[in-house]
Design a protein around this nucleic acid. Structure first.
Lengths: 217, 217
DNA sequence: GTCTATAGATGGATAGAC
DNA sequence: GTCTATCCATCTATAGAC
């Protein structure tokens, strides 16, 4: 009964969450001109790197000339920043919903791991990789701005890890564990190819949880 | 007695290992012109990224003009490749020695974790970060070449992890675990500041080992 | 809102003197 | 082996027509 109630209370449907953010103008509609450009930009930045991607590449990817880009964005860096900001906003909402839908601290951790793996290796994968590998290409002022959003996101993890620590299930420091997980999960983007091997996203999540020393399992 | 014998048999002294590699012309003498340039290049590539680092930056770092650089290296990319190749060669030797000096599979794993953390956060830290974050800037042919060296290095890890699996101490897949560790340990370069916090390198190693679910502890 | 055209700056790499 | 000088390609961003 509680499960049903919670479903009504907080929808975990990813499409619903995306639509709600679009309605509030927090992320761009993927079908709009701006949204399509950001999607292509994320792909190019991940594949070639921000510096090696030219404004001509970006323009060509959406079928316009390079000069026309600057009607939508004032600088190339503004595009990078928009990719990062919208990605964090969307994923914070997705992770929040995933954690809310789980009931125990242990299940919440699994939900967060599962959701982050999905973000990294699924539809927002390009943008998540950009967030990790192109961070230095962002100007100092933009970095500070994006960092503020990132801290909300990280807070979700720390809360859950602290609960586990309070339960006596986690031996290591929550902040250290989160940072280890950030590295381990981000790195999957360089090797995890679901189509090739037999390892599913749930299987990968199992491996991560199996690797972690949660007591009283 | 065995401990003493092994010390004589395989020296784990880092300076000795470096000197041996220099003698075989496998890595450059850090005091020579080439070695000093590679050291500065690693620092610049890590701080600004390969693309944002100009040949003028590189030349200025060692006190020469940009044109003079091309007497030592034919292209800028050749410098990046040299940084990576020499780093892997040195660290493979260091890790091999660290693993050899330990006696149980569990102790060997700890020694590898400790040694890689030291590589990432110590003297070769800049170069190790370059290996992770500037991989895409290497041409396809160079990538293939460096990858061959990297596989020897990775083999050290897989051997130890497979031993642990055979002992029944490791629940997760050795290849997956190594990849998780690669990400987690590499990522420490973005947050671990030994001078600031109270966490020593040994303390950090303990946290990593505590996080991993090795059975029969 | 997209186009063409181009300004203005900076990059990697070369040539030849010393 | 390092210097000065410079070529030439390429990049971001702007200007103004449509």
């Amino acid at each position: 009964m509680i499960g049903l109630f919670r479903l009504v209370e907080s929808p975990v449907n990813q499409t619903d969450i995306l639509q709600a953010l679009i309605a509030k103008n927090l992320v761009s509609d993927p079908n709009g001109a701006r949204g399509r450009l950001l999607k292509e930009a994320a792909r190019l930045f991940r594949d070639k790197g921000y510096e090696r991607t030219t404004v001509r590449d970006l323009a060509a990817a959406v079928g316009i000339q390079s000069g026309s880009l600057f009607h939508h964005f004032r600088t190339k860096e503004e595009i990078l920043k928009a990719v990062m900001v919208e990605t964090i906003r969307l994923n914070t909402a997705l992770m929040q919903a995933a954690a809310d839908a789980a009931h125990s601290a242990r299940q919440k951790l699994r939900a967060l791991v599962r959701a982050e793996l999905e973000s990294i290796n699924g539809q927002t994968g390009e943008a998540m990789a950009v967030l990790v590998f192109e961070w230095r290409s962002l100007s100092d002022t933009s970095q500070a701005e994006v960092l503020e959003l990132r801290e909300i996101y990280e807070g979700l993890w720390i809360n859950v890890l602290k609960s586990l620590q309070d339960e006596g299930a986690l031996a290591a420091d929550p902040f250290v564990v989160r940072r280890m997980l950030t590295g381990a999960l981000s790195w999957t983007v360089t090797w995890y190819k679901p189509e090739r091997g037999g390892l599913t996203l749930d299987g990968l999540t199992d491996e991560v949880m199996a690797m972690m020393a949660l007591k009283n399992d």
